[in-house]
C-alpha cells in the first residue's frame, strides 16, 4: 500500500522536527516572569493567503504592463501598499506588548490546566486577535483594548507532578490574514498537578487508615499542654500569637488529645494498590476528610504531616502527594 512509505517518511520527518524543536528550545532563553515583545523576538511571514494575494498582484502588474494601463497600475500599487501596511499592522499588533506569567491554581491529574498570560500594551495601540499556542488549536481570540487583559493557554490533560509550561507561542494574523506574526514565550510558569482523586476502597476505616491511639503521650487537640518552638509542619491554628507579640518568636501550642478519633492516612498500609493508585486513594480521602471536617494526618515514606484540618493543611498534604517521588 502506498501509505507505508509515506508514514515512514512522516516518522522520519517527525524525528527531525523534534530534534529541530529541541534545538530551537535550547536557543530561546527563559524569560523569567515577563517578556516585552520587541522587534528581536517577533517573526512575520506571509500566510498562504498572503502568497495568493502576491500572485494575484503579480498577474495584475503583468496585465497593467501589457495594456499600458495607468489606472490598473495604480490599483495594483494601491493593493500592494495595503498589503505592505497590513504587514506593519500585524507586526504592530505584537510589538510593545508586555506579557506576564499569571498564576495557575493547582489542578488534579487528568484535568487540563488553564494557564493565564497577562497582556499589557505598552503603547496606546489596542491589540486584536491574539492567540496562544499553535495555529491548529481552536480558541477565542484575545483582544487587549486598553488596559491589561488575560489570555489563557489551556493545556492537554496533565499527569501528576509539577507541569512546567513548555515553549509556546503567541501569534496573530490581524488585520488581513495575509501575514502571520508570532513570538516565542518561555516564561517560568508551572502548574502543580495533584493526583487524580480515585476511590478504591469503600470506607475511611479500611486499611490505609490508622486510628489514633488512645494514649496520653499522643499529641491531640483537646487539652493545652504547653508551648514549644514552631515547626514547619505545625498548623497556623496552633501558633501562639500572643506569645509571638511578646517574644517575636514563633511558638506553637501543644495539646494532649484525650478522645482521639483522629485519622492517619498512611501510604505504607495501602499494600494491595499500585503506587499511583495509592496516591489517588490518599488524595480522595483527604478530600473526603475535609468535606466531613475530620482532622487527619498524612504518612508518606520519609515524610509525615501532623494531624490537622483546613484549607492550608489540605493544600500542604496534596502538594506532598503531587510531588511524591516524581521522576
Amino acid at each position: 500500500m502506498s501509505t507505508t512509505p509515506k508514514s515512514k517518511k512522516n516518522t522520519r520527518y517527525q524525528a527531525i522536527r523534534i530534534k529541530l524543536q529541541g534545538w530551537f528550545n535550547s536557543r530561546i532563553e527563559r524569560h523569567g516572569n515577563s517578556i516585552t515583545l520587541t522587534g528581536r523576538s517577533i517573526y512575520v511571514i506571509p500566510t498562504r493567503y498572503g502568497f495568493m494575494l502576491a500572485c494575484m498582484l503579480f498577474g495584475l502588474l503583468l496585465g497593467s504592463m501589457n495594456y499600458s494601463n495607468s489606472m490598473s497600475f495604480m490599483l495594483t500599487f494601491l493593493v500592494t501598499s495595503i498589503g505592505i501596511l497590513g504587514m506593519h499592522y500585524t507586526y504592530g499588533n505584537m510589538v510593545q506588548l508586555k506579557i506576564d506569567a499569571g498564576n495557575c491554581p493547582p489542578i488534579f491529574a487528568g484535568q487540563n490546566a488553564k494557564i493565564p498570560f497577562l497582556l499589557t500594551p505598552l503603547n496606546s495601540r489596542p491589540r486584536y486577535g491574539l492567540f496562544l499556542g499553535d495555529a491548529d488549536r481552536l480558541q477565542q481570540p484575545g483582544n487587549v483594548e486598553k488596559a491589561r487583559s488575560a489570555l489563557c493557554f489551556s493545556t492537554e490533560a496533565l499527569s501528576r507532578g509539577r507541569y512546567q509550561l513548555p515553549r509556546t507561542r503567541i501569534w496573530t494574523t490581524f488585520p488581513f490574514g495575509i501575514f502571520y506574526s508570532w513570538a516565542w514565550l518561555k516564561l517560568d510558569q508551572s502548574v502543580l498537578v495533584y493526583p487524580q482523586p480515585q476511590s478504591f476502597m469503600q470506607h475511611l476505616e479500611s486499611e490505609g487508615l490508622q486510628q489514633g491511639e488512645q494514649s496520653s503521650n499522643r499529641k491531640g487537640d483537646d487539652d493545652f499542654a504547653g508551648i514549644r518552638r514552631y515547626q514547619e509542619t505545625d498548623s497556623p491554628n496552633r501558633i501562639a500569637w500572643k506569645a509571638l507579640a511578646h517574644s517575636r518568636e514563633l511558638l506553637s501550642k501543644e495539646f494532649h488529645g484525650t478522645t482521639d478519633n483522629n485519622i492517619w492516612l498512611n501510604y505504607e498500609l495501602l499494600t494491595q494498590l499500585e503506587p499511583e493508585d495509592r496516591l489517588s486513594q490518599l488524595c480522595q480521602w483527604i478530600l473526603d476528610c475535609e468535606r466531613d471536617h475530620l482532622p487527619y494526618g498524612l504518612c508518606l515514606p520519609g515524610n509525615t504531616i501532623d494531624i490537622d484540618l483546613g484549607e492550608r493543611h489540605k493544600k500542604h498534604c496534596l502538594e506532598r502527594l503531587a510531588l511524591f517521588e516524581v521522576r
Binding site: 504592463m65 501589457n66 499600458s68 494601491l78 501598499s81 495595503i82 505592505i84 501596511l85
Partner: peptide, 20 residues
C-alpha cells in the same frame, strides 16, 4: 494610508513599454 505609498510606486516604479 496606502495612497501615498501607491503614489510613490506609481511615479517611480520602472515602466516598460507594452505590450508583453
Amino acid at each position: 494610508q496606502a495612497i501615498p505609498i501607491m503614489a510613490v510606486m506609481f511615479v517611480l516604479f520602472p515602466r516598460i513599454p507594452g505590450p508583453l
